[in-house]
């Protein structure tokens, strides 16, 4: 496989995690401009674990995602009562706070005569685990997509269960959901933590692929993009954000078709979609139509699935 293609595909995969993270919150009706914070937290935490503490990649990834999830859990409480615009501002402020903390975060140790670790705005160099362990770019891409596939399967599963229905109820009308007996606090915190964990997985992957992270990577534009990906791709299924990322990074950034005008084209695309398909290409109605068409075509499998799931 061509190196450039591998790189593009890896990028698409990694960024999809943060887009999915924003998507989970969009499902519950909240617009977050701050998911890049969890991406950043995990990038640093996992990098510290593998490059400085000598942990393995998988342990580092788990640790990074865990720290991001815990940060999300802490953020969930003060933002619980915020809605709409206020939630957006609150999460944005949190993400900027995290970024500014990394600007002044110094924690370095000497390894083989070289200083390794986060060095404020200079960034954090030397997260070289996958190179030192001879994991090829292709292998790493497969790792990214294996993890992405697991997260997607997890989200599909959630969408089909009670929890998914509750997320959507909360997204549509929190008060009405509460009247049905939904424990709002519990499920909103749950959604925030799931979103934090997913962004965390992406952040850890990002840090190890690039070997280097610096605070300014995690600026507000990353958050804005991750939101936009879901809105472009569609909010009807977890595949939507993946479509959004593929369109942006795969088509606009990588083909150099619109060199220099990428942001113009991207912004225009968002504007057009907001008018014609406000909930994205694969919105709920499209998904609904596809599902019904699928059922009509294969009536026997439908009956089978009904027998399998007697709820």
């Amino acid at each position: 496989m061509d190196d450039h293609l591998i790189q593009v595909l890896s990028n698409i995969g990694m960024i999809t995690f943060i887009a999915l993270s924003a998507y989970v919150l969009l499902l519950t009706g909240e617009i977050s401009f701050g998911q890049q914070a969890f991406f950043a937290i995990s990038a640093y935490a996992s990098g510290i674990a593998t490059a400085m503490w000598g942990w393995s990649f998988w342990l580092g990834l788990l640790w990074g995602a865990g720290v991001a999830g815990f940060a999300a859990f802490l953020l969930a409480w003060p933002t619980l009562r915020m809605r709409g615009l206020y939630f957006a501002i609150g999460t944005l402020a949190f993400a900027e706070m995290v970024r500014l903390i990394f600007e002044v975060f110094h924690y370095q140790i000497e390894i083989d005569g070289e200083m390794v670790g986060p060095n404020g705005s200079e960034g954090f160099r030397g997260i070289r685990y996958i190179f030192e362990n001879n994991i090829s770019e292709f292998q790493y891409m497969m790792i990214i997509y294996a993890l992405l596939a697991s997260v997607l399967v997890f989200l599909f599963a959630i969408e089909r269960t009670r929890v998914g229905a509750i997320f959507r109820m909360l997204g549509e009308d929190e008060l009405l959901a509460e009247m049905q007996g939904v424990n709002r606090t519990y499920y909103k915190v749950m959604a925030t933590v799931i979103a934090g964990l997913i962004a965390g997985i992406g952040g850890a992957l990002f840090a190890h692929m690039n070997t280097y992270v610096e605070p300014k990577i995690f600026n507000v534009m990353l958050g804005v993009h991750s939101l936009a990906y879901g809105l472009i791709g569609g909010l009807g299924t977890a595949l939507g954000p993946l479509i959004g990322v593929s369109l942006d990074i795969g088509l606009l950034e990588s083909t150099r078709m619109f060199t220099g005008y990428r942001m113009v084209v991207f912004g225009g695309l968002v504007a057009i979609l907001l008018i014609f398909r406000p909930r994205g290409l694969l919105d709920e109605e499209a998904v609904h139509a596809i599902r019904s068409a699928w059922r009509r075509k294969t009536p026997s499998t439908r009956q089978q699935s009904e027998i399998d799931a007697p709820d």
Binding site: M169, E172, D173, M179
Partner: peptide, 11 residues
Amino acid sequence: PENRLVFRDMT
């Protein structure tokens, strides 16, 4: 409830 009757985007 009054007014906010149904989850509109759910079947």
